[in-house]
Design a protein around this nucleic acid. Structure first.
Lengths: 216, 216
DNA sequence: TAGCAAGTCGTACTTAGTACGAAACACTTC
DNA sequence: GAAGTGTTTCGTACTAAGTACGACTTGCTA
């Protein structure tokens, strides 16, 4: 019992350190050795708190789901879903490394299941028939995950040296060969006011509006 | 010149073999050694056709983009985008390993650029102002990528033994703790007619309809 | 036919995940 | 408190994978 609590705490310490490391230096910098270093211990010690690296990643993904706000029960379904989708996007942006992991983990953790449960319950409470619930869920999650994926990409880009980036793009990129791409970049994407993230709310409302119409 | 052509051919052989291997046995089974084996050669030989594993993956991703149908110029923009989005989804489903890679590659290849160029040109031809073009592109691609990501997940699941899967799910999954999830699975997702993929066209039309309204 | 460029590959180094087992430690039970 | 038992730590070492280095082979060109 006491050692249960101690072990749980240690496991959480390990997971927290792993997330911190991945946030700060990227997923490829997260190795059992670097994680041990970050915790001031040796690699093999970690294996007493986590069965292996795969389980470590599973645990990290479950924490990501835990950080996402569930749709608040007191709100009307559209507002509730807007809250949860925005929160999901924000969490995934905070942990960009997690986006590709969401796809490759085959061991759903309790937080992931609880999250799905809450979302399905919200759609059900809205009075949607099950087939529409399925569509709504698939469509909204696809959008959220896909958007997060693109944002994670941009985040990496922005992390590079600007000069390096410009050079790389210019070299890979013959303006004459890609006129529309060039025009789009020059006249819109590289203008001061542009923010890729603005498209999130736009798309989310598009989907919620469409679903609301279908639900009625 | 001749050797140029020969080298290009060899590079393409390597890439083709790599894609075949990844399709058949998954991305984690694709190592420089296994790829060399598949080609009947030795690991270090590959480095004369590809600068390294990163470049190999970059090349594979670019081939994935090459396989996607571009929006046909002769069609009205909605139909054109429907064709390209369906094709993209189909290609990504055929190469599930590529989905997480799309995010992590920072060296856009010519096929990727050409694809983006074609899509932007289609939206531009539809008369959309640039800000709407940006929204349309971001929103549609998020949906397509996110959907592909979820399908890739399902594909892996389906690859496992059914018994194993059922056992895993049942153990991770207390029906009483997740009533709505259980009901959803029993009454809908596990029914004979259910097909996750059906939500793709549903969501795609939702987005295209919304964008059409905005463009008018 | 001599010579050079292109391609092949044996060897070996590095980094990463992790099995094994001994030592250190903590906590119970007598 | 001493003995015993389970937990945690960690040194060592094995394996897999990416890849640098340099020798060898091959086939074309002058």
């Amino acid at each position: 019992m006491a050692d249960q609590a101690r072990r749980r705490l240690a496991r959480e310490t390990v997971l927290a350190a792993a997330m911190e490391l991945a946030d700060r230096e990227g997923l490829e910098a997260l190795t059992m050795r670097s994680l041990a270093d970050a915790l001031g211990t040796k690699p093999m010690t970690l294996y007493h708190h986590v069965p292996g690296k795969e389980a470590l990643l599973d645990g990290m993904v479950d924490i990501v789901f835990a950080e996402m706000e569930k749709p608040p029960v007191e709100l009307e379904w559209r507002d509730a879903m807007r809250v949860r989708c925005r929160s999901a996007r924000e969490v995934l942006a905070r942990h960009p490394w997690s986006v590709p992991l969401l796809e490759s983990r085959h061991h759903p953790g309790p937080e992931l299941l609880a999250h799905h449960e809450a979302v399905l319950a919200t759609l059900d409470r809205a009075g949607m028939p099950l087939p529409l619930v399925a569509h709504a869920y698939a469509v909204l999650d696809s959008f959220v995950y896909g958007f997060a994926m693109q944002e994670a990409n941009l985040a990496v880009q922005r992390g590079q040296e600007d000069a390096e980036l410009a050079g790389e793009i210019a070299s890979a990129f013959d303006p004459a060969a890609y006129p529309m791409l060039t025009r789009f970049a020059m006249e819109h994407a590289m203008q001061p006011g542009f923010n890729f993230g603005d498209s999130f709310d736009y798309g989310l409302d598009l989907l919620l509006d469409g679903l609301a119409r279908a639900a009625a």
